[in-house]
Nucleic acid binder design. Structure first.
Lengths: 212, 212
DNA sequence: TTTAATTTGTGAAACAGTTCACAAATAATT
DNA sequence: AATTATTTGTGAACTGTTTCACAAATTAAA
């Protein structure tokens, strides 16, 4: 893909994911074109926002008509890196971890959970609903042979930083963290956090402060 | 609490949750005061950001010294609405739903999952690891008697909008949605989305576009 | 074919969020 | 008690994001 001239904002990337989902639905419903106006309406955004976001990556639309659904969907897939498969390892087979291991959406988008790790001997080796759990001590070796691109950390907060350090030292450059703690990683490692309590706290704030 | 004069930004609220967690840890480690400099360093923010965020809600610090840890923690808890308990209902006992039903962090922050619903007769009534599942058809009645404040939707995408409509019509004003779909709600209902695929897509984008 | 209606793509304007920089307040030191 | 060091709180400057508004391109209609 062409190198981007400008730094793309987090919000634009987030909306790209949203457009992608909308386009998948539009394709299923046999739409051939979609205008920025209609796409914005469906996703509660503004038409200008949609056009501006897309314009960072090129000119995909036709004036007077709109954007070609399938073409745009493919283009966004390319931008987001969804035209290839990604090898994912999941660490931690607690409540959240085992739910994620069986979450169907990941595979649909090309995220293959190839390895699942834990440090609990009772879980290791077990074949629970099709998941075989490996010993976390084998992480470095297995991550290398399976060419893991992305690691999901779903261990308790107090164990997370040590696991994270191990993951980083194995050369992994992208981490999705579910532990409610701020992990320290080097600058060349991309870290994203998914903290479900924070979302609930946001709702609590909104309920407590009407009009905000 | 005093009515806020300005609209508080999403990012400030998000960081408030982060400060709160940091302060809980600082209290545990017997810190009595913390400077904006040190707090910022721990959470990879800037001191000015920390001070500005807090200044929207009042003056909590002492010049030359910093902020009193416990006092500030309590103040933020009050701002976020964490000084009371919130009654939460969870809908959908699939992979994600049952993981959330057992997730300990929620209760720790005062979010009590009082009801769990599903439409699958095989799951209803079952006492799976301490969770009793109610029939979704009873939602309106039970939500009222249990005074539910917040609903978590964890059903498949295609079922989510209908469930959401039912929840809204029962008078619920705050929803946390895990289904990978953009739910339509009236303006007076606060909706937050937790889409785990989007986070992975963000990582895929970052890996595919180094330097962004 | 001509005219009217759409809709994109994009600079410019407006708005929002972050960082700077410094006076004021307090603590710590001499 | 006086001096020095620290740190807050906050306008102002800056930076980044969103919205506006319109020329240009194209489609649809007359």
């Amino acid at each position: 893909m062409a190198k981007l001239t400008r730094k793309i904002s987090e919000s634009t990337i987030h909306r790209l994911s949203i457009y992608y989902r909308a386009l998948v639905a539009l394709e299923r419903d046999n739409y051939t074109t979609i205008s920025s106006k209609e796409l914005a309406k469906r996703e509660k955004l503004t038409p200008a926002q949609v056009r501006k976001d897309l314009s960072f990556f090129g000119s995909f639309g036709t004036r007077g008509l709109g954007y070609p659904v399938v073409e745009l969907k493919n283009k966004i897939a390319e931008i987001l890196g969804l035209t290839r498969l990604w090898n994912v390892a999941l660490i931690g087979v607690g409540n959240i971890g085992s739910a994620l291991a069986q979450y169907k959406e990941f595979a649909k988008q090309g995220f293959n959970i190839k390895l699942v790790f834990d440090n609990d001997q009772r879980k290791i080796g077990s074949n629970h609903k099709g998941i075989i759990v490996s010993d976390i001590r084998e992480f470095r070796k297995l991550a290398q042979t399976e060419q893991i691109d992305i690691v999901i950390i779903a261990v308790p907060a107090q164990a997370a930083q040590a696991i994270c350090d191990e993951v980083v030292s194995a050369g992994i450059k992208a981490i999705l963290n579910f532990a409610p703690i701020n992990l320290k990683v080097p600058d060349d490692v991309i870290l994203r956090n998914q903290n479900m309590c924070i979302e609930l706290e946001h709702l609590a704030f909104a309920l407590s402060n009407p009009g905000n």
